[in-house]
Design a protein around this nucleic acid. Structure first.
Length: 553
DNA sequence: CGCCTTTGACCGGCGC
DNA sequence: GCGCCGGTCAAAGGCG
């Protein structure tokens, strides 16, 4: 494990396995590519100590400030009275130096076996110290992340509430100005109503309004819809809603409210631009999964009903439209289409969040898509310092290696793409890079994927990317955690200490999410493996969703 | 018989 | 205003 990391470091200057030398990470991610580069050079270009010069200004301070026991060659040789705290690390550094200069130990006449043994012990001790330090650091970062996350959520909710109150006050004033002579008592009633029930109503009034004349109907509708709105983003148990919709039919179902992406701009004409823009983003948030499969549709454990098929421009393969039928009124829909360039690649795009309990087989994919959608939604709020953060993150991410995530500003909808099409575990994914449009506003950040794990492509068209980036990184760390936890013996070109830190933090932060994601990825990979023959993605579960046809095949 | 797919029509957004 | 395009609807037919 540790040796694997070491070897990994050796091969790539862009790799960031600063395992023995940790910079202060920002939110668990090493956002300093320059430092990363220096780390790699320092660790393995043992005879090249110019790296110390680069490092000195920034890293040495950090090391000592974190009690990081990095002692350079001169120190280790000249100061034998180092405290025990530094002895271990001094030994490590000596090992490194010796490995590079191949002089000191043998020429000293000391038994090489003894030195080897001593070195091994030192390494082990050093690794243990590092592990402990990482754990503590990750705990700290975890706390920080949670705090930031909570603060952001609270602020977002507060902002939405304030905007709603302002809008309602405006509406109330307008109504009063128009009818102030008529019945003043009614106006007071309206004010009370606005201050009370209207606010939650606005959460749900995103579809066509003004069609509900029956107060009772409106009330019940408001209740269920507001529930759906306010809880959107996480799976919900809404069976009552489903039963109601069954009786009502399609016209009044929440589905018709929440699923009208093309109609969203029309709603923008009303007096609630802020929350509706948020809602529009929510509706438009998509999660796309690219997987190699001969099957007409990848199996995700849900039941789908095909409701349309169209020939998309620029693609000879038809695009099929499905909606979730596990519960009436479930807003989740997906599009399935084969890639025009490579028809073995199946592109499945999910929209929406299930409003019903999911079977375990469906839970994995749903968790993945939901998390990705939430990731997008979390970035839906504008930010004043957005560009700064974006640029900062972009700069931090760009120099990284093969497996990356991309944030795109060119997509029509905010879309997260899980690319499961990597065939060669060690491939550098040329196809992936071909997909990246250098002209678009895209930022890349490392994903320690490798292997068959997804190349996490986050493409987002909305201009509000900072929070999304933060969430993307956060979620990315979870992918990283998965990988680290499952592939300890595999050399990861892009595996860095900070990745490890982030992974550890992610795992400790949310094991449920990680487990679900692990299952999802495992199932996806297992089902989409190119060598598994056709229809490898069809799950044994009882989903009858593989009957759709792709005449293009 | 109920559920599903198929498929042409329809609708709204968008660009010219 | 017109046409293109993506997305959806809904009638018709198939299937178990």
């Amino acid at each position: 494990m540790d040796k694997g990391w070491g070897l990994t470091l050796e091969n790539s200057s862009s790799d960031k396995v600063g395992f023995f030398k940790i910079n202060k990470p920002v939110f668990g991610f090493n956002l300093s590519p320059r430092l990363n580069h220096i780390n790699a050079g320092e660790m393995f270009s043992c005879s090249e100590y110019p790296a110390d010069e680069k490092r000195g200004m920034v890293n040495e301070v950090d090391f000592f400030s974190e009690k990081k026991p990095i002692v350079n060659k001169e120190n280790s040789q000249g100061d034998n009275s180092m405290r025990t705290e530094f002895v271990v690390n001094t030994g490590l550094q000596l090992v490194t130096a010796n490995a590079g200069s191949d002089q000191s130990t043998v020429d000293d006449g000391i038994s090489s076996e003894f030195l080897e043994d001593k070195r091994a012990k030192n390494e082990l001790a050093q690794l243990q110290v590092e592990l402990e330090r990482m754990n503590a650091e990750n705990q700290c970062l975890k706390g920080m992340l949670t705090q930031v996350s909570n603060s952001y959520s609270a602020l977002q909710m507060h902002l939405v509430t304030l905007m709603q109150q302002q809008q309602q006050q405006l509406i109330s004033r307008t109504e009063n100005s128009h009818a102030h002579e008529v019945v003043e008592a009614k106006s007071e009633e309206k004010k009370q109503e606005n201050n009370g029930t209207i606010v939650p109503r606005q959460f749900m009034e995103l579809g066509p309004s003004g069609t509900k004349a029956d107060p009772m109907d409106e009330l019940s509708h408001s209740h269920s819809s507001s529930e759906e709105r306010t809880l959107s983003g996480s799976p919900r148990n809404n069976m009552e809603l489903a039963s109601r919709d069954k009786a009502i039919g399609r016209e009044e179902s929440p589905e018709s409210e929440s699923w009208a992406p093309n109609k969203a701009p029309k709603l923008m004409n009303s007096s609630k631009p802020v929350e509706q823009s948020i809602e529009a983003t929510m509706r438009k948030a998509r999660v796309s999964v690219r997987a190699r499969s001969e099957a007409p549709m990848i199996s995700d454990g849900c039941q789908w009903r095909k409701y349309g098929q169209k020939m998309a421009k620029g693609n000879p393969c038809p695009r099929a439209y499905y909606r979730c039928t596990m519960a009436v009124g479930c807003p989740v829909r997906k599009q399935v289409q084969r890639c025009a360039e490579d028809r073995t690649i199946l592109i499945t795009t999910y929209e929406g969040t299930h409003n019903h309990p999911l079977p375990p087989a469906a839970m994995t994919m749903a968790s993945t898509t939901s998390a990705a959608a939430n990731m997008l939604l979390s970035g839906s709020m504008p930010s004043a310092d957005g560009m700064m953060n974006t640029n900062f993150l972009a700069r931090a991410m760009l120099p990284c290696s093969s497996n990356m995530a991309t944030i795109s500003a060119s997509a029509p909808f905010p879309t997260v793409t899980l690319d499961l099409t990597a065939q060669n575990p060690n491939a550098t994914l040329p196809n992936y890079h071909q997909r990246i449009n250098p002209a678009s506003n895209q930022f890349q950040f490392p994903l320690p994927a490798g292997l068959n794990y997804p190349n996490f492509v986050a493409s987002m068209s909305s201009p509000q990317m900072p929070q999304f980036l933060g969430q993307a990184l956060y979620n990315q760390s979870k992918f990283s955690g998965l990988q680290v936890s499952q592939d300890n013996n595999i050399h990861h070109p892009s595996l860095s200490h900070d990745t490890l830190s982030a992974a550890t933090a992610a795992i400790t932060a949310d094991p449920n999410f990680t487990a679900a994601l692990a299952a999802a990825i495992s199932s996806i990979i297992g089902g989409s493996h190119p060598n598994n023959g056709n229809n490898s993605t069809s799950a044994p579960s009882s989903n009858n969703n593989n009957t759709s046809s792709f005449q293009g095949n």
